[in-house]
Structures are given as C-alpha cells and as structure tokens.
Computed example of a mutant assay.
Amino acid sequence: MTRNIIAILRGITPQEALPACEALMAAGITKIEVPLNSPEPFDSIRQMQVEFGHAAMIGAGTVLTVADVERLAGIGAQMVVSPDCNIAVIAATKGAGMASYPGCFTPTECFTALAAGADGIKIFPSFLVGTKGIQAMRAVLPAQAQVFAVGGIAAEDFGDWLAAGVDGFGMGTAIYTPGMDAHDIRARAAGIVAAYDMAKEAM
C-alpha cells in the first residue's frame, strides 16, 4: 500500500541516513525527504538512493536553486520539495525527470506551480491556511492536482484535513528530530501510518 506521507528528516546526518530510511520503510513510509539545510544532505540522499531507491522515493527538501536541482539529479534523487514556488526550480526539476513539489500558500501560487509542471502542491505552512482555507482552494484547483499539507499537522487531525481535500501530508518533527535512533523513528512512523490508514478507511 502506497501512502501519501512524506517523511521530512531535517537535521539527519549521513551516518544516520540508512538506518532511518530502513526504519521508515519498515513502518510503511516510502516517500523520504532530506532537507538541504541538514548536515551533508547530498551524501545522505546519495546513500539512501543507492540502497533503497528501488523501493522508495528519495529526495530533497528546502531546495531553493537550480544548481541544487542539478546536483540532486547527478546523485539520482527522485523528488524535489521546496518551501517556495520557484518556476525555475520546478522547470529544472521536471527537465531532470524528478518529481516536483513546490511550496505554495495562495491559490495564485498553486496555479503558477501547476502551470510550470509541478507534480503536486505543498501547502506550507498548512496550520496558517487551515482546513477551511484548503477546502476553499480545493473548490477551484484541478481535481487531479495532488495537495500535501505540511507544517503543524497532527496525526490525530488527519481525518479533518483529508475531508477538506488534501491528498497527503509532509511530517517532520512528528517522525524525526536530530539524534533520534532508528527504533524510535520506526515507532513514531508506525503511529503516523496507523493514524493515516484509520483516517483513510473512515472516509
């Protein structure tokens, strides 16, 4: 079962990357993002892609420049996530054959991102938009547009966000904080997966 949950491993080190990735996959999460403001992020992404890229979508977050996109393409990354709607970054990402998830906060940014070729929209920070804001945006966005809620989302509220029209979630500190061991990552991830599955079943 493929779940629309992106695990955000902000602050992870290359030494922790493979055990963390394995723990997430064991819990049922196969979309994994290493933000570029983590220590040596390209090394972590490269390791995870080599070891687990056949079974998981491995990529980067906090991607702000075309140069970073090009470097990610060179190490085999599959996904580029950004906090902003940068048309040049989206175009470079798609040109390199990677999935693009730019950050958007307004309907204008959402439509701009989709027109530029984005695979999905990252509503960020979602807690400021709220479920009512998502619902209003969903009324005008294309039905096929994938919408991820990122920022301040609690697992117990998944049902409310799904009902408002989101397709998935980006989860950061709820899954990982720097220094956390693989056992704890798996336990947290398993709890989030269980909440997601329950919310989906209740729809």
Score class of each variant (00 low, 15 high):
G61W: 04
V63W: 04
T65M: 06
T65S: 10
V66R: 06
V69T: 08
V69D: 02
G74S: 13
I75Q: 07
A77K: 03
V80Y: 02
P83V: 03
D84I: 12
N86Q: 14
N86Y: 11
I87K: 12
V89N: 02
A91V: 13
T93F: 05
K94Q: 13
K94S: 06
G95W: 11
G97C: 05
G97Y: 14
M98T: 11
S100T: 12
P102E: 09
G103H: 07
T106C: 12
T106G: 08
P107Q: 11
P107N: 04
E109C: 07
C110T: 01
F111E: 11
T112V: 07
A113P: 01
L114I: 10
L114P: 04
A116F: 03
A118M: 07
D119R: 07
D119P: 04
G120V: 04
I121A: 05
I121G: 02
F124D: 01
P125C: 05
P125W: 08
P125K: 03
S126C: 13
S126F: 08
S126H: 07
L128K: 07
V129E: 01
G130A: 06
G133F: 14
I134W: 05
Q135I: 05
Q135G: 03
A136M: 10
M137Y: 13
A139V: 02
P142M: 02
V147E: 08
F148I: 15
G151M: 11
G152H: 01
I153M: 02
D157Y: 00
F158N: 03
G159W: 01
D160V: 10
W161H: 05
A164T: 11
A164W: 01
G170I: 07
G170L: 03
A174D: 10
A174M: 14
A174P: 06
Y176K: 04
T177V: 14
T177D: 04
G179I: 12
G179W: 13
A182D: 02
D184K: 08
R186N: 12
A187K: 12
A187H: 08
R188S: 10
I192P: 00
V193T: 09
